[in-house]
């Protein structure tokens, strides 16, 4: 068996150019599958948290008149205290902290983040961050009473917090009636951000929050357009991206199979000479498997590097696909070895 493995390595060395082409093709297949899987898993995840029934908006500015900014904020503020969720990037705090700072308003997080005592206060804020900013935070003059939370950020609802970067400062506001104090209202970019990121759930809609929210913008410089972004994206992935990707993957797999069969044809004469000289089919299998196993191992390594060495769903999907490719290649070898007649090969007919 050792000899068979050694011969397998020799085959690999002899066909190194073909090996690299194989590897590139296989890695290409895997990277495409990875990208699509990422997109699909993300979309399915979004659907699993019932985004389909949520309301979101695309904001279109229709005027340069920003004088009604403060009014708009004061109308949106109590509404977001009752339900819905949103966030905006704070320009003032970002400049003070030296890190991008995001302010989140989400009443549904209250139970998770605040004690009863904190909840009883009319206005309250808590800061959560993945960065070590204790010293910096102490020096900043916040608009309202603020404490620095030690809650594990990963416990936050993924719907909002997954979209932030690790080193961003996240400030969660509790029931503020002074949202305007946290926002820069002269230019309207933060209110624009806040409205653009707003989401209401189905129960918010039932409670009349959605209608009330939309009514605020009837005479505003911002016009709301209901966004069906999530559904559009899923539809686009399923209807257009998937068939294209499936075609590309199928083409690459066919190319890989053709290349593999041509490699087998090239090696088959040598295999035949070994069979005549006493090699068993098992030895030929072992020899051929060296090429395939190393091919797949390198591919798996490449995938792992791209995947950050995480054992997640993507890694699982790719592993299963590579395993299928391995068995397909072994099956092809089996068919070639079983079907062909040694003596005919020797006459040069094949």
């Amino acid at each position: 068996m050792m000899d068979a493995l050694m011969l397998g390595f020799k085959d690999l060395f002899k066909n190194k150019r073909l090996f690299f082409i194989f590897e590139a093709c296989l890695l290409m297949v895997c990277v495409i599958i990875m990208s699509v899987s990422f997109a699909l898993i993300w979309e399915l995840d979004q659907r699993s948290i019932d985004r389909t029934s949520s309301e979101a908006y695309t904001v279109i500015p229709t005027s340069n008149d920003m004088t009604s900014n403060s009014q708009l904020i004061s109308k949106v503020n109590p509404l977001l205290n009752k339900g819905g969720r949103s966030f905006f990037h704070s320009e003032y705090l970002t400049s003070q902290m030296g890190l991008t700072t995001v302010i989140v308003i989400d009443s549904s997080l209250n139970d998770l983040l605040y004690s009863d005592e904190e909840m009883n206060q009319t206005s309250y804020a808590k800061i959560f961050t993945k960065a070590d900013l204790d010293q910096t935070l102490m020096t900043i003059d916040f608009p309202e009473p603020t404490t620095f939370g030690s809650t594990d950020v990963s416990r936050f609802d993924e719907r909002i917090f997954d979209s932030f970067f690790d080193d961003e400062v996240i400030i969660v506001l509790l029931h503020t009636n002074e949202l305007g104090k946290w926002m820069e209202s002269t230019y309207g970019s933060e209110i624009f951000d806040l409205v653009d990121n707003v989401q209401f759930t189905a129960s918010d809609k039932q409670n009349g929050l959605v209608a009330a929210f939309e009514a605020i913008f009837d005479d505003s410089f911002l016009t709301l357009q209901p966004s069906s972004y999530q559904n559009d994206e899923l539809r686009f992935i399923l209807l257009y991206v998937f068939p294209t990707i499936a075609f590309v993957i199928a083409a690459l797999l066919v190319a890989l199979t053709i290349m593999y069969i041509s490699l087998l044809k090239k090696l088959y004469r040598e295999y035949t000479i070994h069979l005549i000289s006493g090699a068993t089919l098992k030895a030929i299998y072992a020899r051929n498997s060296v090429f395939i196993i190393i091919l797949i191992a390198f591919c798996l390594l490449g995938v792992s590097v791209l995947n950050g060495f995480e054992l997640n769903d993507i890694f699982g999907i790719i592993s299963v696909i590579l395993l299928l490719i391995f068995f397909t290649f072994e099956l092809l070898l089996y068919v070639v070895l079983k079907k062909r007649n040694i003596s005919i090969t020797l006459k040069g007919v094949d």
Binding site: D3, L7, E270, I273, H274, S277, A279, A283
Partner: peptide
């Protein structure tokens, strides 16, 4: 085996 040396051809039966 055309792309192998004489030695590599002769040794084949000895592998098994």
């Amino acid at each position: 085996v055309e792309d192998a040396s004489a030695y590599e051809n002769i040794i084949i039966p000895l592998y098994y």
